Simulated assay, not measured.
Amino acid sequence: MDVSLRSKVDQACRVAEEFTKLYYEAADKRRHLISRLYLDTGLLTWNGNGVMGNERIQKFYMDLPPTDHTLNTLDAQPILDEAVNGQLTYLIQVSGTVKYQEKVPKTFQQNFIVTAEGGKWKIVSDCFRLQEPITEKS
């Protein structure tokens, strides 16, 4: 791996650590602020349910039961400049467990595409999925 690519990957990983700390703190303790983390046109896909726009995403999160997330893995990579017209953009991948109210924790996976806007990281796209077996329909 060349030095400039390694540097970009290292920076993506540092951003991922900082960003996910903010995100999951907001999701678990400060949901009324979560819309600030999304672009105005941000997209959330939550277990197959699509929500577009930071205000609608805010309402969606406010309607969820209280959560407590624990991260197990975190990875990030830069998205090639050619794909995003040079806009600083990262793919962040997370897995862990989430506990809803007093229920048994469930495993989840979440992928974010974040981009730099006005000195802050904003979510372009967020895909959350509980890791439950696919059941065959009969």
Rank of each mutant, 00 (worst) to 15 (best):
45 T>G: 00
57 I>Y: 06
78 P>D: 01
81 D>C: 12
33 L>Y: 12
42 G>V: 01
120 K>H: 04
19 F>T: 04
128 F>N: 04
3 V>H: 06
30 R>A: 12
135 T>Q: 12
10 D>G: 04
72 N>C: 12
82 E>Y: 10
34 I>T: 03
26 A>H: 13
83 A>L: 15
47 N>G: 08
83 A>Y: 08
132 E>M: 10
63 D>V: 02
29 K>C: 10
90 Y>H: 11
53 G>Y: 01
96 G>T: 01
71 L>M: 13
32 H>Y: 10
89 T>Q: 04
72 N>T: 15
130 L>T: 11
70 T>G: 00
115 T>Q: 10
57 I>N: 06
109 Q>L: 06
26 A>M: 11
16 A>W: 10
133 P>M: 06
47 N>Y: 06
64 L>E: 12
105 P>S: 06
80 L>R: 10
50 G>M: 09
117 E>A: 09
126 D>E: 07
100 Y>G: 01
102 E>P: 00
16 A>T: 10
3 V>I: 09
102 E>Y: 07
9 V>Q: 13
31 R>V: 08
71 L>K: 09
136 E>P: 03
108 F>S: 00
35 S>P: 00
49 N>Q: 13
60 F>K: 07
110 Q>C: 04
55 E>S: 15
46 W>Y: 15
60 F>V: 05
13 C>E: 11
42 G>H: 01
80 L>F: 05
39 L>I: 01
49 N>Y: 03
119 G>Y: 06
22 L>T: 15
21 K>S: 12
122 K>Y: 04
128 F>T: 05
132 E>F: 01
105 P>K: 05
136 E>I: 15
89 T>R: 02
3 V>C: 05
99 K>T: 14
